[in-house]
Design a protein around this nucleic acid. Structure first.
Lengths: 143, 143
DNA sequence: TCCGGGATGTTATAATATCACGCTCTCGGT
DNA sequence: ACCGAGAGCGTGATATTATAACATCCCGGA
């Protein structure tokens, strides 16, 4: 992600939060920036390291709170199978996404609104779905 | 699960392992039994507790090793979003399953061979998929 | 017998995540 | 201006989940 598009994404995120009546505070913005800057899924404790160039500040709750906020706002997704987080530049309020994660380069593609197979048990009402596909992206497969 | 069907499931699991040229050792069998007995997803450290009525033995690696074995054999699945494990009475060697987990009663239904939506990025080769749906089962919804 | 590999035991520690408390803002009401 | 409520955050402690590293045991084949 270029510096330019990063700035745009952050501005869009800020606008998105305002629409929802919430604030993208400095800590939250900084965490989102770090997540978006990363090449792929990023760990909470790596964010924690990145947050504290100085002494003192930045303990685990700081980063987990920011991540919770960003997830609720639809700006970040958690990759459950990796205990890691990925940014989502096109903020959306529907909870779920379908993630395609390249195990080689770490790149993550996100898809939405996938018509999931009508495979559910009779009468089961889905509230939240976790869909994560791991494999090789086109680049890494041919490279 | 009744005692009877539990015993049958364990025997079937043992046969399944033998077919694969592997051994369902006492520790592994005991862990599988505990997982199958559970109403729903069960945590590694709960298994650990259940494994040590006596002092001494049963440390984390014991249960994690058993779980790794059982997962590889297709006898147990990890619910990534819960860091928990569910038993799979009908052993299968294909890695992935689609799980429907009732948030109310904890019951888990498993589906296989779901034709996933052709939503993948061009050229992406899927090696492993995690598909977990959370919601309410028919019983809990009407009850 | 001796070796080799798989399985397990054991100690320690790493990695991930949450709790509980208190402080400081800001904002709206009075 | 003053107060009170609530959001956000700092901080210390701790809970939860998972693995590393090395020792030991047991069994089967050479």
């Amino acid at each position: 992600m270029t510096t330019d598009s990063l700035i745009k994404a952050l501005d869009a995120a800020e606008a998105h939060c305002l629409e929802r009546g919430e604030k993208l505070t400095p800590v939250r913005k900084r965490v989102l920036e770090l997540v978006l800057e990363a090449d792929g899924p990023v760990k909470a404790y790596d964010l924690l390291e990145a947050l504290k160039p100085g002494p003192g500040s930045a303990k685990p709750p700081t980063v987990y709170r920011a991540l919770d906020f960003l997830m609720t706002a639809g700006l970040v997704h958690k990759v459950e199978a990796l205990n890691a987080f990925v940014g989502c530049s096109h903020a959306h309020d529907d909870g779920g996404a379908e993630l395609y994660i390249c195990s080689d380069c770490g790149n993550v593609e996100e898809r939405h609104g996938a018509p999931l197979p009508m495979n559910a048990p009779a009468g089961f009402v889905i509230q939240r779905s976790v869909v994560e596909h791991f494999g090789q992206c086109a680049n890494c497969r041919t490279g």
